[in-house]
């Protein structure tokens, strides 16, 4: 089956303060609709890998494919478009535009994509918020909601353009067990019903165990 995401021999060094080989020969692929988790000790390079996969970091060697298309070496302008259209990203810390309302935050990537009318975008954004049980916060300023709520707004924003793959750096890190469970179920549903691929870094072993596949990392390499 065609892979949604594939890496071939990705290597990355940090040169400051001294040469540090942070990612070593990373090669793996992700199937459509596959729910994958990445686990590993703190500092083993999970976030670094995710930044490369999300096309934000271009300083590496090796090849990255998205939907069978080579991404490595594309211009920044093209990478922006690819991120906008195909990749949803949830940060380790919840980053929202604090001066905008929750709804506007969620709508922003769709407005940039400009494939739908404003009404449709707003409707979709409301749907995503409701799905994450924060529909009632839509008009609230993003700076005036709790950390867990922010994390869910960030998830809604990552989903707004119906991406091919959703990447998360500890997306449930700030959530209580109830909401964590809810987010897990939403992810699971999206994978099964919509065919969305997910790649999620987590420190929560229970969370990881229930995903389709676990990638274990140690010192910049994939163990299995």
């Amino acid at each position: 089956m065609k892979l949604v995401l594939e890496t071939r021999n990705i290597n990355k060094h940090f040169y400051k303060p001294k040469d540090f080989h942070v990612l070593k020969d990373i090669s793996f692929g992700i199937q459509p609709g596959e729910f994958t988790s990445i686990v590993g000790k703190s500092g083993c390079g999970k976030s670094t890998l995710l930044y490369i996969l999300s096309t934000m970091d271009t300083e590496y060697t090796g090849e990255l494919y998205l939907n069978g298309q080579l991404i490595t070496g594309k211009s920044n302008e093209e990478l922006s478009r690819i991120r906008n259209r195909h990749i949803g990203f949830v940060f380790q810390f919840h980053y929202l535009l604090s001066e905008f309302s929750v709804l506007e935050n969620v709508m922003l990537p769709a407005k940039k994509l400009a494939e739908k009318s404003l009404e449709e975008i707003e409707h979709d954004a409301q749907e995503k918020l409701k799905m994450l049980h924060i529909g009632h916060l839509a008009q609230q300023r993003a700076s005036r909601i709790s950390g867990g709520e922010k994390q869910r707004v960030a998830i809604a924003r990552a989903l707004i353009n119906n991406p091919t793959i959703l990447m998360g750096d500890e997306p449930t890190g700030n959530l209580d067990s109830h909401n964590s469970e809810n987010v897990f179920n939403i992810f699971k549903n999206l994978a099964q019903e919509k065919g969305l691929s997910l790649l999620v870094v987590t420190h929560d072993n229970d969370f990881a165990k229930r995903t389709d596949r676990i990638i274990e990392m140690e010192d910049g390499s994939i163990l299995k």
Binding site: R81, N84, F89, F91, L97, L108, P109, K112
Partner: peptide
């Protein structure tokens, strides 16, 4: 700065 990072991460180009 954080806003700039978010905008870039969600698909806004440097030019935008």
């Amino acid at each position: 700065m954080k806003d700039i990072a978010i905008l870039k991460a969600t698909g806004f180009s440097g030019r935008d």
